[in-house]
Amino acid sequence: MVPSNNDGFVVARSKEAKLLGIGDLEPFYKVQHLLRAHGVASFSSNYLLYGDISHRIMTILREFSPNVEVYSIDVMFLDLHGLQEDWQDYGRKIRNTL
Rank of each mutant, 00 (worst) to 15 (best):
M1Y: 04
P3Q: 04
S4T: 10
N5I: 04
N5Y: 11
N6Y: 05
D7P: 02
G8R: 10
V10G: 00
V10D: 00
V10H: 00
V10A: 02
V11C: 08
V11L: 08
A12F: 15
S14L: 07
S14Y: 11
S14R: 06
K15T: 06
K15C: 04
K15D: 10
E16R: 01
E16I: 00
E16T: 00
A17F: 11
A17R: 02
A17D: 07
L19F: 10
L20T: 01
I22Q: 07
G23D: 15
G23K: 14
G23M: 13
G23F: 10
D24Q: 13
D24G: 07
D24A: 10
L25N: 08
E26W: 03
E26Y: 03
P27V: 08
F28M: 06
Y29H: 08
Y29F: 12
K30Q: 12
K30I: 05
K30W: 06
K30H: 12
K30L: 10
V31C: 08
V31K: 01
H33A: 15
H33Q: 12
L34K: 13
L34E: 14
L35E: 09
L35W: 08
R36F: 02
H38D: 09
H38I: 02
G39L: 04
G39P: 03
V40I: 14
V40Y: 15
A41L: 10
A41H: 08
S42K: 11
N46L: 11
Y47F: 15
Y47C: 07
L48P: 06
L48V: 07
Y50T: 00
G51K: 01
G51T: 00
D52E: 14
D52G: 08
D52Q: 12
I53C: 09
I53L: 15
S54F: 08
S54N: 12
S54G: 13
I57W: 03
I57D: 01
I57Q: 01
I57T: 05
M58E: 11
M58S: 07
T59S: 03
L61I: 00
L61N: 00
R62W: 10
E63W: 04
E63D: 13
F64K: 01
S65Q: 01
P66R: 05
N67C: 06
N67V: 05
N67M: 09
N67L: 12
V68G: 00
V68S: 00
E69H: 09
V70K: 15
S72C: 12
I73K: 10
I73P: 11
D74Y: 08
D74P: 06
D74L: 04
V75L: 11
V75W: 09
V75E: 15
M76Y: 03
F77Y: 14
L78K: 03
L78N: 01
D79M: 06
G82Y: 13
L83I: 00
Q84G: 02
E85G: 06
Q88G: 12
D89V: 05
D89N: 09
Y90V: 10
R92Y: 14
K93M: 03
K93L: 03
I94M: 06
I94A: 02
R95H: 14
R95Q: 13
N96E: 15
T97K: 15
L98H: 11
